[in-house]
Design a protein around this nucleic acid. Structure first.
Lengths: 216, 216
DNA sequence: ATAGTTAAGTGGTCTGACCAATATAAAGTG
DNA sequence: CACTTTATATTGGTCAGACCACTTAACTAT
């Protein structure tokens, strides 16, 4: 077991910094600690009690700081085991914030419009990386009559987003998709849409992709 | 003083929900409370002690939930006064995140690419609603040499997003903009970009808008 | 009426306690 | 010896109570 954690001296109570709250100060210290000890995802942090002792702060304050890190998706706490660094997931925050944004944006129009935009651009991003294999994949989804319209739509775009190779864009789409699913009277693309998109990919007609998406 | 807060009955301790931690449950309850009582920015929430009593949870657990809300920029706590709802702002979170996230080129690419997409589509959405007054507004921003590149860029697009009339898209943009601001070596559009966009608006050349945005 | 004082309320923090889940070491078992 | 079982220590999760610092409002003295 590791015993000496090599914290930079000084209490968290109140240093000269501008931080008015202890937990904010602790946040910095923990950040510094991670850097100093070169911790990587999966590594364990000192226990709450140890942190509170090393930083000369109450355990509750340490917990508030950890809670913040957890909310940001930077650490993971497992009862009985400890606190661990999580692999960087930049978009966890985006997800969180988006959840709030979407909750307040009741405008159905906005959501559908955004979703169409994202899908269109993904289709365009995927264009340059399109190859025979992927086109066949898309075609098999399209011609699979066992799928209901929603499933077909979903699987079709999942393939496209994978090729588009922009994880953030994909995350945004998923959020919009999930939210739009909860709305009544959701319309999916019709047959001709898929045909035209596939045509554009096959015959390498970049410009015609744009036309397939309705704006607003 | 308000005495009855009208919480949905039940302890926060553990409901049937999947939430394993009390503070997560409290988070939901508080959100529900805000909605139920129609609180708007500036309004005060019940005190920590009152919340802890009403929700039958420890004050520390309530605090962990409040800390989460604070981190998301949804509330503001003022010692001696109370806890207040804040108008939605992303900056706080972004600041915190940027302190932790090591700039990953892959991530940066995604963000910049998404931002360009959103800006482009906003410019296109704004197209149909463009008129003399707005164009003049844009032109005055462009020709204002007192502005540094960043401010010019920001103000230019704020006008465009206003005209684009999609609040969700605008919010996403602000988020991406904040993120990108924390990254070093941020590039802004150059002179010719603004000129071309203005030209497209003035001469009603819709198609040429697209060309002004780089699709890396 | 005004200024100064006091009391109550609120967030911020610490401490100590207990619970629940896990990991580790010790003892038992084949 | 290897394997299971049992006890113990460690860790996160939660609660309760106690201060402190700060703000506000009511009260008092001038």
């Amino acid at each position: 077991m590791q015993t000496s954690w090599n914290f930079e001296g000084g209490t968290a109570q109140q240093s000269m910094s501008t931080k008015s709250k202890v937990y904010e100060e602790i946040l910095d210290q923990i950040k510094h600690f991670i850097k100093e000890n070169k911790l990587s995802p999966g590594d364990r942090l000192p226990s709450e009690r140890e942190l509170s002792e090393q930083l000369q702060a109450g355990r509750s304050s340490v917990r508030e700081a950890l809670r913040a890190l957890e909310l940001l998706g930077l650490i993971e706490t497992r009862r009985g085991e400890g606190t661990f660094l999580k692999p960087y997931r930049t978009y966890h925050t985006v997800e969180l914030l988006s959840a709030f944004i979407l909750q307040e944006t009741k405008t159905r129009k906005d959501i559908l419009s955004c979703k169409a935009i994202v899908e269109k651009e993904a289709a365009k991003l995927a264009y340059s990386k399109m190859n025979e294999g992927v086109i066949e994949e898309l075609e098999s989804v399209y011609s699979n009559n066992g799928l209901d319209p929603k499933k077909r739509y979903e699987q079709f775009f999942i393939i496209i987003f994978k090729k588009a190779d922009n994880y953030l864009l994909e995350t945004i789409w998923k959020l919009l998709y999930d939210f739009s699913s909860t709305m009544e009277e959701t319309n999916y693309y019709n047959q001709s849409f898929y045909i035209e998109i596939l045509q554009a990919y096959k015959k390498k007609q970049f410009v015609s992709i744009e036309a397939q998406f309705m704006n607003n």
